[in-house]
Amino acid sequence: MATKNSYTFPSRNWIWDRLGARTFGLILGLAGWTALASVFPNELMPFPQETVLLAWGLVESGAVWEHLGATIWRTVLGFIGSVLLGAGGGILMGINNYGQKFLTPYTVIGLSIPAIAWAAVGTLVFGFTIWAPVAATSLTTAPFIAVNIWKGTDNIKSDLVTMSRSFDVSRRRTIWRLIIPNASPMLFSAFRLGLAMSWKIVTITELFAASSGVGFKLMQTYQLYQFEQSWAWATVFIIVILGVEYGFVKPLERRVFEYRQDADFNLLG
């Protein structure tokens, strides 16, 4: 079994030993923010503690739940849409030569279309409804998911497939016990990328194609010159994203890849 933490650079540094890289990074980031806040006017860039207090005020007033809830709901729907489109296309490209040739041009085009373009098209088609950000998110993210899944299913270990055949293991069992787990690192990577992109694209779309959501509030407070409010909304959003990452995605990743004893998950943060 491989020894973890075998890289020695961080462990020799007392800051890393005592505080941990994550805490140290956070403190450094807050210090940088404080330094910038002391340079810029306070109404343009408030100090971290002021922003946190404002964000807490949004929580207490209940405004956060309405707008954050709308953004999360759109993100979830957009993510589901992008996974359905991307996984379907990616699997087809991975297991079928015709499917790969048929879908490659669409994937290439999809990869190069910016989210803002889909957001504009989505607004034209669906108006100021929930479907504009959902459609924009699904269409922007799906090609990235498709490429990851395509590469994951394309990279099947042929020696394990022949082993399965020699022991008369059925095709169904081979898919569930061999092909899907074999592709799981790429699948996981695809879903993680999809979720991260969905957050961003929903927020961008909400800037001009919604009447609720964190993106809408960011744009509204910007237009009203309430920059400290913009910072507070951004802070709430960042806290939620970090909560999803460290409270859900990383524990799930550790669980799924428990067998990879040589992998050092500390390297992933």
Binding site: D159, L160, T162, M163, S164, F167, D168, V169, S170, R173, R177, L178, P181, S184, Y259, R260
Partner: peptide, 17 residues
Amino acid sequence: RLLPWNTCLQNIEYVHE
């Protein structure tokens, strides 16, 4: 040719479908 995501027991169970 063992499934790396399965334990020794699970690798043997795999061929007993």
